[in-house]
Amino acid sequence: MSERSERAVPLWEVFVRARRGLSHNHVGSLHAPDAELALRNARDLYTRRQEGVSIWVVPAGAITASSPDEKDAFFDPAADKVYRHPTFYEVPDGVAHL
């Protein structure tokens, strides 16, 4: 894609909450000149205009992602330090959804 059209048609990330869904899930991305069109296009492409769904569109540039290079530091917990994990408590009966 040329520099010019890249500038004119930025990338948007699309999040959809289904009619009975609890949260918005990332479903994909699309190109659109602005938020209004991104929303409409997302409706066509990802929801088939079903009633009762909620759509979020976010310019891809507004998203800060964790870097794959720092994966180890970010996500690999020190498993040898057991006191980091809250496993030493007795859960009372009746607290089902802790």
């Binding site: 048609v9 699309l30 190109h31 659109a32 069109l37 409409r40 296009n41 066509d44 492409l45």
Partner: peptide, 10 residues
């Protein structure tokens, strides 16, 4: 645009 293509077909 590709998105418009889909919209018109819709």
């Amino acid at each position: 645009e590709m998105e418009e293509d889909v919209a018109l077909a819709n």
